[in-house]
Amino acid sequence: MRILIALAAALMVAGATTAQAAAPAVMAAPNINGANVKAHLTQLQSIASANGGNRAHGRPGYLASVNWVKSKLDAAGFTTRVQSFTYGGATGYNLIADYPGGDANNVVMLGGHLDSVTSGPGINDNGTGSASILEVALQMKATNFKPTKHVRFGWWGAEELGLRGSRAYVNSLSSTEKSRIKAYLNFDMTGSPNPGYFVYDGTEHKPVIPGSVDLQKRLEAGFASFGVPTELTLVNGRSDHAAFTAAGIATGGTFTGAEKIKTTAQAQKWGGTAGQAFDRCYHRSCDTMSNINDTALDRNADVIAWTLWATAA
């Protein structure tokens, strides 16, 4: 499904003078091929299978995952760096990737955690978010997207142990570096097998951070553009956006559900099975390639691209 960035165009021309009204239209966000995202997930599954069945902090499967994602981004011309940190007596790693160009004082950042729990390969949690932002990053290069803002991606380590990697990254930034990040978008579990379509509530953090509600509305508009109703969710600091909100940075994100039970009303709205968890394999060994809903994965990947193009254009 190809989604045009009508919202981005509207944002750019809002308040324009008559003389400015002839500005060129914003290019369309690309359709993200769900098969490409699944191919990335297959690679993460293979890495876990070859390394004791997981991709957890301090385990060889995690570093192998970092190295594989880095190789894909390096080949696409991103500037990458691996940031190390220590937690629980083990070295953890964050992967940071910068897309060339854009205003370095106006950074849009996307991220998701790359680690799994020790009990399984973590394909939905959070291979899905990690693979989706990887494919979106690769499509920036493939479509020769030239955003006016600078775009940065982060794959976080040790999220499953208390958001350790994202906190280490934000804490490593100077006040000036933090002030340059104008938006952070987080994608954690975007292909749950009994999916919901949740958008982070931009008013969750108190006081409300300027820009967070704008990101919420932009994500909602992305889903609405192809007829998918959404609900707001209070993530309550359970994912990596928490470090950014603590630093006063506007945040947003999407989520397809974890251990909570889908209600009858939600099943009527989204399909799937009422009375069953959104993800019955949450934090279990069965979180494998068979634990993915292809439609939810594809829709979320398209919305990620839609929102990035609208925010960074």
Rank of each mutant, 00 (worst) to 15 (best):
F223I: 08
Q268Y: 00
P121V: 10
S130V: 04
S84H: 09
A296Q: 07
P193M: 11
G102C: 04
L44E: 02
T256H: 05
G111K: 00
V151D: 03
P30G: 03
T254N: 13
H57L: 12
A305I: 01
L41Y: 07
A25R: 14
A16C: 12
N186E: 12
F255G: 03
A14V: 09
R299S: 07
Q276V: 15
G34Q: 12
P210M: 07
E159A: 10
V13D: 10
N300V: 10
L163I: 14
A221H: 05
V213L: 12
G237L: 10
E220S: 12
T307F: 04
H241T: 03
S174M: 08
L44C: 04
L134D: 03
R2Y: 04
Q20F: 08
A277P: 09
A48P: 05
A258T: 15
S212D: 11
I292E: 05
V117P: 02
A28M: 03
A29N: 04
G253T: 08
L11G: 15
A142V: 02
N144L: 05
S285Q: 14
L234W: 11
L44H: 06
G252C: 06
A243G: 15
T17P: 10
Q266T: 07
L134C: 05
A265S: 13
N236H: 10
K72E: 14
V199G: 07
G53Y: 03
P147C: 06
G196K: 02
A250D: 13
L7Q: 14
D287M: 05
V107S: 00
Y93M: 04
G248Y: 08
